[in-house]
């Protein structure tokens, strides 16, 4: 199973991610986002993680939680200039998420992502695989 794929979008960045469960889906789409920002850093996973962050979010529903998760990671990236390469989600309900993420100093950043949007967002299960497509403003 593919973790994620980058789709064609006229102006912005559209990532479709997959997962055997929701936790995996949330992690894979986050990886796809950081891969888009800095492919070199995400590929070179051997770099010793330098920064550990704890994340705790509550949102109105599952879709909002996914958008908030990605925007939380973008905020952390913008403040700390760390590319997050490892995500451990310890709690995930429809409205709450708790996670620990590991960041590294980026090798080279290619794309400036402004935010994750709600546009057309739907989290669904197809053939036993969870999937979601997120449009990012770049």
């Amino acid at each position: 199973m593919k973790k994620y794929e980058i789709l064609e979008h006229t102006a912005d960045l559209e990532i479709k991610a997959y997962g055997k469960d929701l936790k995996e889906l949330f992690c894979n789409i986050a990886e796809g986002m950081f891969y888009s920002i800095s492919p070199k850093t995400v590929k070179a996973k051997m770099i010793k993680p330098q920064k550990r962050e704890k994340i705790s979010i509550s949102s109105s529903d599952r879709e909002a939680l996914l958008v908030d998760w990605l925007n939380e990671l973008l905020y952390l990236y913008n403040i700390s200039r760390q590319i997050y390469i490892d995500f451990k989600i310890s709690k995930l309900t429809d409205t709450e998420l708790e996670a620990e993420v590991l960041g590294v100093t980026p090798e080279e950043e290619e794309v400036l992502i402004k935010a994750a949007t709600y546009h057309g967002l739907k989290i669904e299960k197809k053939d036993e695989v969870w999937q979601a497509t997120v449009v990012f403003d770049i």
Binding site: S60, E63, D68, N71, L74, Y75, K114, A115, Y118
Partner: peptide, 25 residues
């Protein structure tokens, strides 16, 4: 970017309050 992100999040619950239905969140 952060101002827009913040307010999209805080406005979501207000949709119900103002009885607004939209085709795209």
């Amino acid at each position: 970017h952060q101002v827009c992100t913040d307010y999209i999040k805080t406005m979501m619950p207000a949709l119900e309050k103002y009885k607004i239905t939209l085709p795209d969140r």
